[in-house]
């Protein structure tokens, strides 16, 4: 008897799951979704659907539809495809600047609530007028935004690979804001642009390229961006090998500790690395340079513009202290040169 009850339970459980069945061939796999608004405030959704042909070549289909909500716009696309839109494999979400400036909260809301969609994709702000245009380019050139993003982060440091769910977590913390990657079209080529910084859910503006790199150094401990100081004779160019940034509170002041190891990649004639003392001098020059830049960056965004992209307010919140009107901070930079690339070893 027990056996039959057990079997019955199993069957009940299984048939509950049965309506979840979806044949793979009935799915339209969406890899890129773009969202725009028109003049009347309606959403325009543009999707890139990937399908393979028989020889296993990737081919993409573009579809577009409007609706008065995101859900509606995406639903309306279904009228144009024979398959069901499948958002679980979404890699890239591009929103237009207009949407970003008026707030991304309802977009985030949609993706959190839709149980089909995963939140492990990357959010971009379109520097072009519409996201649709960028997607057309993506589809035409068959580029993968994901790969571009990864290599930008890895080798340049001007972009970061934070998924939407990581962004959401960051926004939902008290006193913490996000930066989002941007993309645009330059002379018929897609490129990854500077970071766009947000306050709460609304985009405020773009950083410069150097600032984007600085943000990523401070925020995600990225490795491998290149630092440059001096001109011609005094030129020093180094590549960051390891990077450890810590934020802390000390005497009601924010403490920024930066520990870096760098490799020298280029030096001018006047720079000598022949003895330990001289290497130390070079390290000092670099430390001062980095310190200046960090201080500039923090002053500009954290203090003047008041965006919490480095999460200073969150530091105070966690210690249950009030965030001071004029926040003060200390920067300690420690740089050591790991590899000079010299022909002769100095020791």
């Amino acid at each position: 008897m027990k056996k039959y009850i057990f079997a019955l339970l199993v069957v009940v459980v299984m048939f509950n799951a049965f309506d979840n069945l979806k044949e793979i061939t009935n799915l339209a796999i969406v890899s890129v979704l773009g969202l725009d608004v028109d003049e009347e405030g309606n959403y325009i959704a543009t999707v890139e659907i990937i399908a393979g042909d028989k020889e296993n070549n990737k081919k993409t289909i573009l579809e577009k539809a409007t609706g008065n909500s995101i859900q509606e716009a995406i639903r309306n696309i279904i009228d144009k495809t024979p398959q069901r839109l499948y958002l679980a494999h979404l890699e890239t979400l591009i929103v237009s600047e207009d949407i970003a400036k008026s707030g991304i909260d309802n977009i985030v809301d949609f993706f959190i609530r839709d149980n089909d969609a995963s939140n492990n994709f990357y959010l971009f702000v379109s520097k072009e007028k519409t996201a649709g245009k960028v997607i057309e380019k993506i589809s035409e050139q068959e580029v993968s935004m994901l790969e571009m993003l990864k290599s930008s982060e890895k080798y340049r440091g001007n972009a970061n690979t934070k998924t939407l769910s990581q962004c959401i977590q960051q926004i939902l913390k008290v006193g913490s804001d996000i930066c989002v990657n941007s993309c645009g079209i330059n002379e018929d080529e897609i490129y990854i642009g500077e970071m766009a910084y947000f306050k709460e859910w609304k985009m405020q503006g773009y950083m410069s390229k150097d600032e984007s790199i600085m943000y990523n150094i401070l925020d995600k401990n990225v490795v491998s961006p290149i630092l440059k100081t001096g001109e011609k004779e005094n030129l020093i160019i180094v590549e960051i090998v390891t990077n450890d940034v810590k934020f802390g509170l000390k005497d009601n002041k924010v403490n920024i500790d930066i520990n870096m190891e760098v490799n020298i990649s280029e030096v001018g004639k006047a720079i000598s690395l022949e003895s330990k003392e001289k290497v130390r001098e070079v390290e000092n020059i670099l430390e001062n340079e980095v310190k200046d830049r960090v201080e500039d960056f923090v002053r500009k965004y954290q203090i003047e513009r008041g965006v919490q992209i480095l999460g200073f307010e969150n530091l105070y919140y966690r210690k249950k202290k009030e965030y001071p009107q004029n926040v003060e901070f200390n920067t300690n930079v420690d740089i050591s040169i790991a590899n000079q690339g010299g022909v002769v070893n100095i020791w």
């Binding site: 061939t25 799915l27 796999i29 393979g52 042909d53 028989k54 494999h89």
Partner: peptide
């Protein structure tokens, strides 16, 4: 994703 597309096109 890539495998999914490949499987899907094979099953078409």
């Amino acid at each position: 994703t890539k495998l999914l597309i490949s499987i899907s096109s094979q099953r078409e």
